[in-house]
């Protein structure tokens, strides 16, 4: 369980997070959703420790992550994997070496065991053998995201964080990535936190959803329940697209 308690963050005069609480459920796909500028990326970066919040706590299974010294954080970081919006694959390394990279740093496996683990993770995200020696720049956006997922899970983390994993992908590939994240979460029992503004993701994989708006939490609950909410801010966000307006109208009939 990831518990977020009273997180505040400001950049100069601009208050981006205004005291947010949320409980991100273990072994589930937790989605933080909201429009651009709602503060969800700052929230995710505060949870993973890329941004130090001004106030509040992040508890990872009861461990106060925000109060930890850097040395202790480094140990805990090996329980985390993260998929970035732009994939953030190392362009100086091949696909295979990108996935091997965390193992080389933090694993005591033999070279043969590392080979096996890398092959397993790449196979799990359905990357073909022919792509292993390629540079990440030679891959499509969807394949880059899959390699990023493989790299994120190679150390078998307890927590998986994904920042806008569908960004820049076509709808079909987005569904593939969503399903992959869900499968991996179930298979490895990870606590997954996905940052997205894609309502399809909410309906596809959202076990637990937190809606943010202007630095506040607007709604939190089980994924499917968001469609039943009468809260006007939730309705405005969820049913803003023409398609969802029609769905809403059909549901009301």
């Amino acid at each position: 369980m990831i518990e977020v308690r009273g997180i505040k963050k400001a950049f100069g005069d601009q208050e981006v997070l205004k005291g947010i609480d949320m409980d991100l459920k273990p072994g589930q796909c937790n989605l933080i959703i909201g429009s651009s500028g709602s503060g969800k990326t700052v929230m995710l970066k505060s949870i993973v420790g890329l941004i130090q919040p001004d106030a509040g706590q992040v508890l990872l299974d009861g461990r106060d992550w925000t109060a930890m010294k850097e040395r202790d954080r480094k140990v805990l970081r090996q329980e985390m994997g993260m998929v970035f919006q732009a994939s953030a694959l190392f362009t100086s390394l091949s696909v295979e070496d990108n996935v091997r990279f965390p193992l080389d740093f933090f694993s005591s496996m033999s070279p043969a065991e590392k080979d096996q683990r890398v092959a397993f993770c790449l196979d799990r995200v359905r990357i073909p053998q022919s792509a292993l020696s390629k540079n990440p720049a030679e891959l499509s956006g969807g394949m880059q995201k899959r390699v990023a997922i493989a790299r994120a899970i190679v150390l078998n983390p307890k927590y998986l964080f994904c920042d806008e994993p569908n960004s820049g992908l076509d709808p079909e590939t987005s569904i593939v990535i969503d399903q992959l994240i869900q499968e991996i979460t179930r298979e490895f029992g990870m606590t997954t936190v996905v940052n997205t503004h894609d309502m399809n993701s909410v309906l596809e994989i959202g076990d637990h959803v937190v809606l943010m708006r202007h630095g506040h939490k607007v709604w939190e609950g089980a994924g499917p329940d968001i469609l039943k909410s009468d809260d006007q801010e939730v309705v405005d966000y969820v049913f803003r697209s023409a398609l969802f307006k029609r769905v809403r109208a059909a549901m009301n009939k």
């Binding site: 140990v75 970081r77 090996q78 190392f90 933090f106 964080f161």
Partner: peptide, 13 residues
């Protein structure tokens, strides 16, 4: 700018 440094930091490097 491509978040590769953030990726290193999240890994604990």
């Amino acid at each position: 700018v491509t978040e590769q440094m953030d990726a290193l930091q999240v890994m604990g490097i």
